[in-house]
Write a protein that binds this DNA or RNA. Sequence first.
DNA 1: ATATTTTACGCAATCGATTGCAATTTCAAA
DNA 2: TTTGAAATTGCAATCGATTGCGTAAAATAT
Lengths: 345, 345
Amino acid sequence: MKKVKRTTIYDIAAKLGITASSVSRALNNSNQVNEKTKELIMKTADELNYKRNILASNLRKGQSKTIGVVVPRINQNFFSNVIAGIEEMTYQKGYNLIICQSGELHDKEIQCVNTLINQHVDCIVISVSADSYDYQHLQNVLDHGIQLIQFDRVAEELETLKVINDNVQASFEAVSHLIEGGYKRIALLEGPQNLNIFKQRKEGYLKAFKMYNVPVIEELIVENAWTKELGAEGTRKLLSLPNPPDAIFASTSDFSALGVLDVANDMGIKVPSELGICGYANESFSEITSPSITTIDQFSVYMGNTVANLFFQEIGNTDTAAKPKIISIKPELIIRGSTLKNAKV
Amino acid sequence: MKKVKRTTIYDIAAKLGITASSVSRALNNSNQVNEKTKELIMKTADELNYKRNILASNLRKGQSKTIGVVVPRINQNFFSNVIAGIEEMTYQKGYNLIICQSGELHDKEIQCVNTLINQHVDCIVISVSADSYDYQHLQNVLDHGIQLIQFDRVAEELETLKVINDNVQASFEAVSHLIEGGYKRIALLEGPQNLNIFKQRKEGYLKAFKMYNVPVIEELIVENAWTKELGAEGTRKLLSLPNPPDAIFASTSDFSALGVLDVANDMGIKVPSELGICGYANESFSEITSPSITTIDQFSVYMGNTVANLFFQEIGNTDTAAKPKIISIKPELIIRGSTLKNAKV
DNA sequence: ATATTTTACGCAATCGATTGCAATTTCAAA
DNA sequence: TTTGAAATTGCAATCGATTGCGTAAAATAT
């Protein structure tokens, strides 16, 4: 690659016999520079193919107009949607996004966060990884005076801005739907309980049982079943119980629900008449399985939008005493074939 | 958010009664600073919670250690996988990724590219949007001395580094598979022909016909059918022909193939016995439809890896005369139920 | 024509890290 | 003890843009 000397404001200034100050002011559309000169400068800048050096500009101004995003995996539907949603909003305002993936690893997450602090980003947006056990690195972000916004998977004990789904409610509605549909023995595939979201989904599950006065059966709760494979494994165990469940709520994801469906098919168990299945996240495929899978939509793109807007709202806000905001988005239960026990399909 | 004065190398220097020069050298692990002082500096830096200001560093060094990525949509499986693949490699080398989405719009794409030039990124990685009609903005990237890598959807006339799929070959194999499977009238759902990838897929389709000495039937080629809806629409037209096809190659995507499957199901046409279906891209759902859809895997994550590695390889290379490299990845035909005409399923 | 206010522009410092060159110190060889 | 080389450290310029302060020039008022 050939080294090209890029044109600076000094080049423009030299060509016009003026100072860089005026050029800078003109380019920033300051009103303390003559209209004629301004036009001239603009024209020359264009001719010389000038592009402002953001590094220099930001260094001087002490900001970076950059937002760092840390997610477990970029190529996971939910996260890529949230990122798309963030980008949509931030792009308009001239902000850039730096994206990192933690790969669900605590150490890598720490590295990512430190990288972003180094970059002097104006804000860090994060959804913590599954094996995060402490949050010193997030506290560190705050100590550096960097705005921190957590979304979806959040460390609740940290007082930061948060954008979350109301997992309890969603889960509650899903299980209520199963109960009302006539299912009697409803199993739960749960995720790592150190993640708030999975804890909340379990909470919603239990809440529904309480509400409908149905006793909870411990053996129907399967830990750590948050992939397709683990979901399938859990299902096999459940279905070979002397008294197997007649519905399974795969609270971790649609992938896990897919595992359930696979096993049911293998074992010749009819869905939804003999076994109801409910997933979580409204992955695109959940609509096209047969039967299609009842699931919960999290409005992920909208969630991204919300995160971005929250940030912009806060930078305008100098009130130190303001309490950290928590925005909760209500997910929506999407009822499909897999939970329609009594319907004629 | 409270304003926090961040510690600089001058703070460290002052505390130790030495110069910033030495601090800088120590932090860069230069060997022209005494081991003892170095240790002391490191320790103090740590105590003061020092983080290097990358803006200043990069400004001075005239680089940004940042790679810009422009894709039509972040939250599209293929692209988010490529991005994940790029990130995997670049992260290790201390590079950051700035992500933009063009939304398939030419103008937004230009804006994105300009933003990235402003940012003084070291490299721009791009997959052009569907309605791009000229490539002045890409030429502009080169004129600024910024490395440019195109992937998947590329402007062929521009001499840049490219990482592509061998679409012709993949398409050829897919259609050959259909022909050999006993399908006689094979239709093509094609995408916008201004995108090289779709042109190539059509080429592969035609090539297979030639190879097997099968005449091409123009009425079986449907333009611009690259979403699920358009795919469905095209399929309806095709199947209502006096002499309908017995196989459809949805060369644009699995989504389009899904549209085909839906219509076939609606019309009571049996897949694969009465109608064969082949998609493109190996979306996760293609495996779980019934029947599962034969498709083509593009090794998207690997493609991202390749892009990143290509970049790192090139920055070491000062040879101006070197010709731009084109790396072609061979996709793989994944045969599934939807094209097994004669198999007993 | 003179005084006063605007307007437009220049000067020079600043943001924080890096680096070529010079100066000083250290240490071993003569 | 002197000398020369090597190892450390300091000085000061630099990257490019921004901005407070000051001044000259132009515009307005007296």
